[in-house]
Design a protein around this nucleic acid. Structure first.
Length: 651
RNA sequence: GGGCCCAUAGUUCAGUUUGGAUAGAAUGGCUGCCUGCGGAGCAGUUGGUCGAGGGUUCAAAUCCCUCUGGGCCCGCCA
């Protein structure tokens, strides 16, 4: 906040210079940025470089002219009121500004409440829908799914804490091929529903289905053609919600889904609504949209060629895409169209909302159900106000990017304003060679290995989390020999959640993450636990303080008191960027910016901790340091909340 | 064949959207620092022709072109 104020002041000053160069504000798009080195002052402006293009003169000469002639001649800097202390020029033509340090620090301590406050960006009126996780309900989540969930959940936290109204959706494909495979396994391949020998530690049904049943049935398909035929019939029967198969499938899906959600809840992900694909099919939304697509001639019936007998969409860029097969069943892609339109609120909502279960944060998780007669209808129907939807964000693997752009193309042709619809793609998580070898995969000359549920090549999310918990538990016991087991377990779990969430959030979404079961699960360095540790150290000081200060209300200080150490100034400067970072992160949908900011903050805080003792300090110096301490912890707390890291007082 | 993404220190990555000054972290290696508010830490040191070549520019890791290497997508699978 403060940071922006200073930047604005410098920009204002530059704007006043412009007329003397025969330019107006609209002619030129100059920039004021932080100087990379202290010797160059605090802020730099690139105006002279831009002018040199227009005036065809040396940028250094132009800068010299501005700083030495124009600024003093017209008394543009008001020394008494300004935070700008001095202006200098540097080759090859930078105009550098040094701010008045004492003035800046005074302002910080005066406005400390504003600096540490979470900025408000949205209004509760703006409804944002975020869809994430959406894992097929036939297996346990693997580490790749965690990336999706953590990105989505952090965005949910980011938008919620900046005062938006956010609802989180989780799409459950309970009528597709993957669940059909599990059903075939149980019904036609004599694979028992209950695991007979519990030789694995896990008792979770999703692990059994993903690790054994799904892999086994895929092996069987290659030798038993009868099973392939059964799969087709299962798929067909799933379209009828009252068939025996559908009812059975419903039970199996629910068991797996609950186990999957348990994993997500374990790492503190929040959801609001489960959207079952079977419900979308039942709603007959597709039929009405199909009709419109035909009427508007957005799709065509193919009579010749390899797609003969299908309804297809001819995309400008992406070629032909089948929506309705020649046997009149609809494709996965086609099902996405009504769902997207429902999310955007441009079709009448056929669903009501029913409680599915409670979740870890004591909120209700709802599921969509077909609307019943009025007198029976659920009381949760205003869960989503479809008129207020401002943004629909879908977090997906980059591999589905093509389908998403096809979807946007169709929405566009339907005349739907598709700027509200935003898909956020991320590159997948692969396994390092060492980790792949542990799973019995041998691929030489490869940098990493793609995970595959079908082939059984994956690291389960629960496995990774449990490994971390054990590792953290050992560390907690080592450091706190007298701790109760219950507390140690609690702390170990919080540490591992922070480690795993931070690990998946800090990296750029456009980069493949190569997961290594040993190297990726670190508790030191640029990690979540490091951040928690810094926070815990800070909290320790507050515990030991002989008196408590009750607020962060601003204080006025004399120049003498503001003789701070470099470490302290650096920390304060960083604190002042807080709201700027939050805004940037929300604007660009980039939670990683907050992770980066938070890590730097922790590092600066640790420096402060090492170099600026508080408890043994006295007088104003102590007051100042306590305020730095409090504001640091407060901002750390805000950022941790967004990443989903629990602040700990002890670890 | 068409399209998208990636390549920066031994390793894992920031920085590329919006060109800017001496390319930053973490980790590993080496060296220090606990009678001090917690050593999951701090300080120091080691380590880089920014995949290659060309172009634009006062200025290129960043923009443009070509090439190389790696990954993904292009199903009547989901």
């Amino acid at each position: 906040m403060l940071f922006e104020v200073i930047k604005e002041e410098i920009k204002d000053l530059i704007r006043k210079v412009l007329p003397y160069c025969n330019l107006s504000e609209n002619d030129i798009d100059f920039e004021v940025s932080e100087s990379p080195l202290k010797e160059y002052g605090d802020f730099s402006c690139n105006l002279a470089f831009l002018l040199s293009k227009i005036q065809k003169k040396n940028p250094y000469e132009i800068a010299k002219n501005i700083v030495n002639d124009i600024l003093p001649k017209y008394e543009i800097i008001n020394k008494n009121k300004s935070l700008i202390e001095s202006v200098s020029i540097e080759r090859p033509g930078f105009i550098n500004f040094r701010i008045n340090l004492k003035g800046f620090l005074k302002m910080f301590f005066l406005k400390i409440m504003e600096v540490t406050m979470m900025p408000t960006i949205g209004t509760p009126e703006d409804l944002i829908l975020i869809e994430h996780t959406s894992v097929n309900p036939n297996k346990a989540l693997h580490v790749g799914h965690i990336r999706n969930a953590v990105i989505g959940d952090s965005l949910y936290r980011l938008f919620s804490s900046t005062r938006h109204n956010v609802k989180v959706l989780n799409y459950v494909d309970d009528s597709g091929l993957q669940i059909a495979d599990i059903i075939v396994a149980f019904r036609y391949a004599n694979i028992p529903i209950e695991e007979e020998k519990r030789n694995s530690e896990s008792k979770k049904f999703d692990h059994y289905c993903g690790n054994y049943v799904y892999v086994k049935i895929n092996e069987l398909y290659s030798t038993r053609q009868d099973l392939e035929i059964e799969r087709k019939s299962v798929l067909k029967e799933l379209e009828n919600p009252y068939s025996q198969i559908s009812l059975f499938t419903h039970q199996i899906v629910n068991r797996i889904l609950i186990d999957q959600l348990q994993t997500c809840w374990n790492i503190k992900c929040h959801y609001d609504i489960l959207n079952f694909e079977s419900q979308i099919i039942q709603s007959n939304l597709w039929e009405s949209i199909f009709k419109i697509l035909k009427e508007k001639q957005i799709i065509q019936f193919e009579t010749t060629g390899r797609n003969a007998g299908c309804w297809i969409f001819k995309s400008q860029k992406e070629g032909d895409k089948v929506l309705v097969r020649s046997d009149s069943t609809i494709t996965y892609f086609a099902k996405d169209i009504p769902y997207a339109m429902w999310k955007l609120g441009c079709i009448e909502n056929p669903f009501e909302f029913e409680i599915f279960s409670q979740q870890w944060d004591n909120t209700n998780l709802y599921q969509t159900k077909m609307k019943r007669e009025k007198e029976q209808s659920s009381s949760f129907n205003n869960l989503i106000n479809f008129d207020k939807i401002k943004k629909v964000i879908t977090i997906i693997d980059f591999r589905q990017e093509r389908l998403q752009s096809l979807l946007l193309e169709i929405l566009n042709k339907l005349g739907i304003e598709n700027t509200k619809y935003r898909y956020l793609g991320y590159e997948p998580v692969t396994l390092s060679n060492k980790t792949a070898e542990l799973l019995g995969v041998n691929r030489e000359n490869k940098k990493s290995t793609q995970m595959s549920g079908r082939k059984g090549i994956f690291i389960e999310a629960d496995t990774a989390l449990n490994l971390l918990i054990n590792k953290a538990y050992d560390e907690v016991i080592k450091r706190n020999p007298d701790i109760s087991e219950k507390e140690a377990k609690f702390i170990a779990k919080e540490i591992s959640i922070s480690a795993i969430r931070y690990y998946f959030i800090k990296q750029d979404m456009g980069k493949i993450i190569t997961f290594d079961i040993n190297d990726s699960l670190s508790l030191e360095g640029d990690t979540g636990p490091y951040i928690q540790y810094s926070y815990a150290r800070g909290m320790r000081i507050i515990d030991k303080m002989d008196y408590k200060i009750d607020s962060l209300s601003g204080i006025e200080l004399s120049d003498l008191d503001l003789d701070l150490l470099n470490n302290e100034i650096e920390l304060i400067t960083h604190l002042c960027k807080f709201s700027t970072i939050i805004k940037e992160s929300a604007y660009n949908y980039e939670p990683k910016l907050i992770a980066k900011y938070l890590f730097k903050l922790s590092t600066l805080f640790n420096n402060f901790y090492e170099s600026s003792p508080i408890l043994k300090e006295v007088g104003n110096k102590k007051t100042i340091r306590i305020r730095i301490l409090y504001s640091s912890l407060l901002i750390m707390n805000h950022c941790m909340e967004i990443i989903g890291i629990t602040p700990l007082n002890k670890m």
